[in-house]
Design a binder for these strands. Structure first.
Lengths: 204, 204
DNA sequence: AAAAATACTGAATATATGTACAGTATAATA
DNA sequence: TATTATACTGTACATATATTCAGTATTTTT
């Protein structure tokens, strides 16, 4: 997906807001009215650019024949980013790390959450967390023993049970006997808690 | 809401299917084409009737200006019932079986779904399905080998992998070595497929 | 039994709408 | 430096589309 310009983003937003409000897509004239353009061709060229970049589809010769190419375009809740569990670096919300977004209500997971993390590997399989599952992550450092945490050790990001053994010793425990516990002495090593799991989403 | 006639229901269905497929509502001519009418006025009168009865709204003078009046749009998505996995009886959508409802977008699970089923027991734990997880169930009898199905044997409802061994023999396979496969001879026993799992939701 | 609603065909028309063509200007890219 | 993409105004026109009018027939409601 090529990058979108700010004006093209305005047009795309306009289409989605219009759709949400009326239930059908806008005409070129509608877009002009909303965004203050004075020629229908202004909207037309933006639409062509958005189509070329893959953001929308246009049915030729069809009135209001615009459809937004977003698989989950329900609008109404919020868009939450899905972040791949990158081996190196923290799962930031930088655009290059966002695989896609999922629309769901704010209150979907009781305590609220910030993003979805796509799971790699089976180190938490006995906790029912499988490959490609999406963990709903709440960004917080306030974690208790037994919480499933998203932790970063150096540049490695992992999902594990959290266990504080003493003020300096933290144990990261997998839920799979094929994996070993990770014991961290906070005096020697840096442990960064990105957040904790507050839910899980799986699509078959 | 006044009662709808069968032909009006066909027109309403047509609008919704067209919307889902194209992303924008149909014209009168589109409806005629889909339903075999020969005059655009056939569609027009049905639309007027549907509007009068409150099922749709029509924006006058506007091409494709049809919007479906979805009563339960508490925010974009729909309310989906959560049904407890009752030991006896089928997980019907009768009110007494509905524990609560969850609001989420229609397209949340790729192929669409009908309700959430709350899981009891750990018979599918190696498939990452844990106690109290919510399985997104799509009501269908069209299941393939390897699908996770919601099956009813007599009055017992279970979630298992589906495996058709021969035209008369079906195997229901758990994902937990502590449980045994269930082998059903369709000549002797009744097997009812309630639907299949299309996703999973867990709240910590 | 009369009136209203349902369920169509068929033709006609005003207008809503997509879209092409002719310009102007600036920023980004090769 | 030339070229392409972006970002517009403005005019024009073919056609896509809503909508009205004139009928016919059956069913439902009053």
């Amino acid at each position: 997906m090529k990058k979108i310009t700010s004006q093209q983003q305005r047009v795309l937003d306009c289409i989605q807001i219009y759709l949400k409000k009326t239930g059908f897509p806008p005409t070129r004239a509608d877009i002009c009215k909303e965004l203050g353009f004075k020629s229908p061709n202004s909207a037309e060229t933006h639409l062509r650019a958005l189509e070329k970049k893959g953001f929308i589809s246009i049915e030729s010769g069809t009135s209001r024949g615009i459809s937004v190419n977003n698989q989950n375009n329900s609008f109404g809740g919020d868009e939450y980013p899905v972040i791949g569990l990158v081996a190196a670096g923290s799962p930031t919300l930088a655009e290059e790390n966002i695989e896609r977004t999922i629309n769901c209500p704010k209150s979907f997971f009781e305590s609220g959450f910030d993003y979805f993390l796509k799971v790699r590997g089976l180190s938490m399989k006995d906790a029912g967390i499988m490959e490609d599952d999406l963990i709903a992550v709440k960004k917080t450092t306030d974690v208790k023993n037994g919480d499933i945490v998203i932790a970063r050790l150096d540049d490695e990001v992992t999902v594990k049970f959290f266990n504080r053994k003493s003020s300096n010793i933290v144990e990261l425990e997998p839920a799979n006997e094929d994996f070993e516990n990770i014991i961290i002495n906070l005096e020697n090593e840096q442990l960064h808690i990105e957040g904790k799991s507050v839910g899980l989403l799986r699509k078959n």
